[in-house]
Design a protein around this nucleic acid. Structure first.
Length: 421
RNA sequence: GGGAGCGUAGCGCAGCUGGUUAGCGCACCAGGUUGUGGUCCUGGGGGUCGCGGGUUCGAGUCCCGUCGCUCCUCCCA
């Protein structure tokens, strides 16, 4: 039997799960403070949902999806992101007619077929929020502020925000034409990818890192200079609200992002502790997406971030400390009567809410104590046949070594455990 | 899609210009102490040296191939 993991998919082990809980808890708590409600949606959707939502020409749809056909020959895909599913659920529930304004968040695994490396896996985990139903710049600012607040709660520093506006769909069309004209003049000197992008999606050329392309990208017009008056005003409002909240950002007119549904505000929160995968979280507006899926014209925006990257930062910066797990009581046993007595005592105390563990391997007493130590048990009770018969024994506080003779009734023990903190 | 590095016990590693039964630390198990922990001592279990082929009297070591992992580039979470 082959016990290898699937490439790019990892076990999250008990020793590291604390960092994940910490990150998830920060997400859940920030969502509570900002009043975003949790939604969970399937891991598999019709392929078309992602293809139409994210855009056929995007890298994700073009070459990174886990796509397969089911037994009825329908094309399904493992979700590569959450936004399309949230919008699908939104329409599915009829929220566009009954409750068009929604603030939602989600946590869960996503799948993209890419070469794995630090901070990039084939099964990775995202936290994300989506706010639908308002075009107001205050919602843009809130979404960005949400991201900062969450990082703040985790004590993560060394972050900066790249911000841009790529305008409404008309602006995008005009901007594409402007870029096409700009790059057409120099395309012969540019890399193969950019030659392909010129007609496919000239905005993506701005993302190119090839040295030979840089001079032409540096002189390219920025998207923020080609906004219609309405979009320009919207962008100015977003910036002024971020200023009001004291949130830092840098305008980056080259930031275009890799998914087609974005309009107007786009942003990425970057970390200098992540190496080459330095985007911790990214998002933006998608004012046309609901309509693309056949719904009414309802705007929305959101972001998604990577838990793996968050965990890397948490571990490496170690600003946060994990609390060691501990046990209220360890029951060491001797003899059959002792074991039976302890077994039933454990049941009672666990029902009362205490964490209790017991030896299951019939090991020497000394080994049981070593185990109690390793488990950080706060109290120890040795129950042998004598204790079982007399229903009395000595409970020991592990750190001080102090022993107290008590009656071995569950209530009496519970009192001692409570007093012992 | 392109590039680089690395595969020896669960983990971290050593193993010289090829030369006996492949070692060390941690972890694990047992005993010292058959009813009281963290220390210490002793012992033990664990390896197709990633896999396949080649060279050789002899390969963990050299050669070729292959698979896997990691990282970089790209893109992004």
């Amino acid at each position: 039997m082959n016990t290898d993991r699937i490439r790019g998919m990892y076990d999250i082990l008990p020793d590291e799960i604390g960092w994940w809980r910490l990150a998830e808890q920060a997400m859940i708590d920030t969502a509570r403070r900002f009043n975003y409600r949790e939604i969970r949606f399937p891991i598999v959707e019709y392929t078309e949902l992602f293809a139409r939502g994210m855009g056929e020409a995007t890298d994700v749809v073009g070459k990174e999806m886990y796509t397969f056909t089911d037994r009825k020959e329908r094309s399904l895909s493992l979700r590569p992101e959450g936004t399309a599913s949230v919008v699908r659920a939104y329409l599915n529930q009829g929220w566009h007619t009954q409750a068009p304004f929604q603030k939602l968040f989600y946590i869960g695994p996503m799948f993209r077929y890419e070469k794995p490396q630090k901070g990039r896996c084939r099964q990775f985990h995202q936290f994300g929020i989506e706010a639908l139903g308002s075009l107001d710049p205050s919602l843009d600012a809130e979404v960005i502020s949400f991201a900062w607040s969450m990082m703040d709660q985790l004590g993560i520093g060394g972050l900066w925000l790249r911000l841009n506006s790529i305008g409404c769909s008309e602006d995008r069309e005009r901007f594409r034409a402007v870029l096409h004209a700009h790059f057409s003049r120099s395309i012969a000197h540019m890399c193969a990818d950019c030659n392909r992008r010129l007609d496919e999606n000239p905005m993506r050329i701005l993302d190119c890192k090839e040295p030979q392309c840089q001079p032409f990208i540096d002189t390219a017009p920025g998207s923020a200079d080609h906004l219609c008056p309405e979009c320009a005003l919207h962008f100015a409002h977003v910036r002024s609200l971020l200023d009001l909240l004291g949130l830092g950002y840098e305008i980056d007119s080259r930031l275009v992002r890799g998914i087609d549904y974005y309009t107007r505000t786009v942003f990425e929160l970057m970390s200098k502790d992540l190496g080459s995968q330095d985007t911790l979280l990214g998002g933006g507006r998608y004012d046309g997406l609901v309509e693309t899926f056949g719904g009414p014209s309802i705007p929305g925006l959101g972001f998604a971030g990577g838990f793996e990257r968050l965990v890397i930062i948490l571990q490496e910066r170690a600003n946060a400390k994990l609390t060691e797990t501990s046990l209220d009581l360890f029951l060491a046993t001797l003899g059959e009567a002792g074991r039976r007595y302890a077994f039933s005592l454990a049941q009672r105390l666990r029902r009362d809410g205490f964490s209790v563990d017991i030896d299951h391997r019939n090991r020497a007493l000394r080994k049981q104590l070593t185990l109690a130590n390793a488990l950080h048990a706060r109290h120890l009770l040795v129950i042998g046949d004598d204790e079982a018969r007399a229903a009395r024994g000595k409970i020991k506080q592990m750190d001080s070594g102090e022993e107290l003779e008590i009656s071995l009734e569950a209530d009496t023990i519970a009192d001692v455990l409570r007093k012992g903190g």
